[in-house]
Amino acid sequence: MKVKPSRHDRASFIAYAFAIIMVVVALSPFIYVVLTALKQPEQIYNPSEIIPTHVTLENFKGVLFHSRFLRYFANSIFITLVTMLISMVLAVLAAYGLTRYRLFGADTIKLTVLMTRMFPGILLCLPFYIIMKHLGLIDSYVGLVAMYISFTLPFAIWNLCATFSQLPWELEEAALIDGCTRFSAFFRVMIHVAKPGLMVTALFSFMNTWDEYMFAMVFINTTVKKTLQVGMKDFIGQYSTDWGLLMAAVTLSLIPVFIFFAVVQKHLVIGLSAGAVKG
């Protein structure tokens, strides 16, 4: 341990310094965002003082009560949860089937799913425009959720296949012998072991859908149907922007992401490494 303390001290000093710098770079934009959201307009436009001296909640009130923010927020939550739910159900079933049964064409399916992860969004966005127009699903959440599933589902299947193939299935066998059905063996026993992988897969579906901008911008025209990411543009004027309002909206929009992230992040390294390392 204490062979060469000076070298170790220097190394750990550099390590701390680097970690602190990276965290500061990661966080400082948002600290400044929150500070701006708390400022009065005069102070934002005369920004030689970085810290607000007259803290005000006017910007937050403006966003919550005098804009369509809450409407957009509810739209986004609805779309995100529906997308996440459908892709998780489909992916759990598929991954269970692919890892627990010997199916004809299973390898082809896995390969196809892997390939679809390489599709750039714009590649599908263009034909989707024509397809959705034919089906009359432009400006409809049914169409939007379907398109979102096109990119959340392949990732979910892939990551859950990797997760499930690493589980101790002897537990399930034991439950089956104890008289459980396959269904109850899975939902009573296996679901607990698979939790990190399931949580991380759900997190990715959530984040990818919540984050999505291009499809929502192209396919949703009605103002009240807009998602939050697109609706944020309301706060950006063509000639001038009310930065205080925009920054308050940014602050509020980050709340659900951070809550979900905080719940799931401790599973992140384990849950992801299955998919990455096992490939």
């Binding site: 089937g97 049964y101 399916i109 679809t116």
Partner: peptide
């Protein structure tokens, strides 16, 4: 049952 389980996802993809 395995084919039944993967069917919805395969159709969706």
């Amino acid at each position: 049952p395995g084919y039944l389980m993967i069917a919805p996802a395969v159709i969706a993809v």
